[in-house]
Design a binder for these strands. Structure first.
Length: 278
DNA sequence: AGTCAAACCTGGGCGC
DNA sequence: TGCGCCCAGGTTTGAC
């Protein structure tokens, strides 16, 4: 599910309703997603805490709580974080329920159970695995074309592989990587270091452009993704290559092709996205 | 340094 | 209906 636009949409949809709310109880139906501390300490520490602020870093959500604690959540493939009324039925994939004042609940559901929840003191956040290795935020002012050019220089790995590397740029996943490369007209297997200046400039523009477009449409819902209000996104209808194997390219009409890059299903237009030059 | 497969889990879709 | 296989939005791990 969740790449940067989806995580950002969850953040925005939870920020209003959650800010100022207090946790009155925590029910853990499945503890496997709780990485630290142990589930009982996790429960005990959270009860009575107030949500102060929500931030996003890459695909991580960071909930600042009273008492100096931070709840860090990574949704991985199928994690969902959404608000519900306390009377609504709890489905079998809901693993953790945070009861809030006013008969509301924040629920964590996760069909494949890959997601991660960690509760740490704010001084400890910087040491968390995955979070500390994150690269640049694509919307930060540090994400310049010169910085990108320097990151690609002499790299032999496929450009798609590099886009998916969270230690380079944070937040891009498999769907947006394909859409970004289509937008920029670059073959996903082209070695990063072989991109021309024009291609680097096009890529630099396409990264924030496609992510922003995803956010404007409230994310991509192909399977499980929903925002903090339980609503699906709309960007799946605007994808131009992802999931469109065999369909005509919207620019040139050639059939969209599916290959594997970095072990991931990869969609591109063989005519618009070439390996050589341009 | 890099690439790859496998692992963590569950479920949907397909062909037979 | 059932079975087996492949696929899935992410990341880590260990082998080469």
């Amino acid at each position: 599910m969740p790449e940067l636009p989806e995580v950002e949409t969850v953040k925005r949809s939870l920020a209003g309703p959650l800010t100022g709310a207090s946790i009155t109880g925590v029910t853990v139906y499945f503890a496997g997603n709780i990485k630290e501390p142990d589930p009982e300490t996790f429960r005990r520490l959270l009860i009575g805490k107030e949500f102060l602020d929500i931030a996003r870093r890459g695909k991580f959500l960071l909930f600042s709580l009273s008492g100096g604690y931070v709840l860090v959540v990574h949704l991985r493939m199928t994690g969902q974080l959404f608000l519900a009324g306390s009377g609504e039925p709890v489905d079998k994939h809901t693993h953790i329920v945070f009861s809030l004042s006013g008969d509301r609940e924040l629920r964590y559901a996760d069909q494949r159970k890959f997601g991660i929840l960690e509760l740490v003191h704010k001084e400890e956040v910087h040491r968390l695995k995955g979070l500390k290795e994150l690269g640049l935020e694509p919307f930060s002012t540090d994400f310049t074309v010169d910085w990108l050019a320097a990151m690609l220089r002499d790299k032999k790995r496929p450009i798609k592989n590099l886009l998916l590397d969270q230690t380079v740029v944070a937040g891009i996943g498999n769907i947006y990587a394909d859409e970004i490369l289509f937008e920029a007209g670059i073959h996903p297997e082209k070695p990063a270091g072989a991109l021309t200046e024009r291609e680097i400039a096009a890529l630099w523009q396409a990264v924030p452009r496609m992510l922003e477009l995803g956010i404007q449409h409230r994310g991509t819902s192909i399977r499980n993704y929903v925002d903090g209000a339980g609503q699906r996104g709309g960007f799946q209808n605007l994808l131009r290559v992802y999931g469109r194997e065999g369909e005509p390219c919207c620019r040139c009409g050639a059939a969209i092709t599916r290959i594997k890059v970095a072990g991931r299903g990869t969609y591109f237009c063989p005519r618009c996205q070439h390996r050589e030059q341009q």
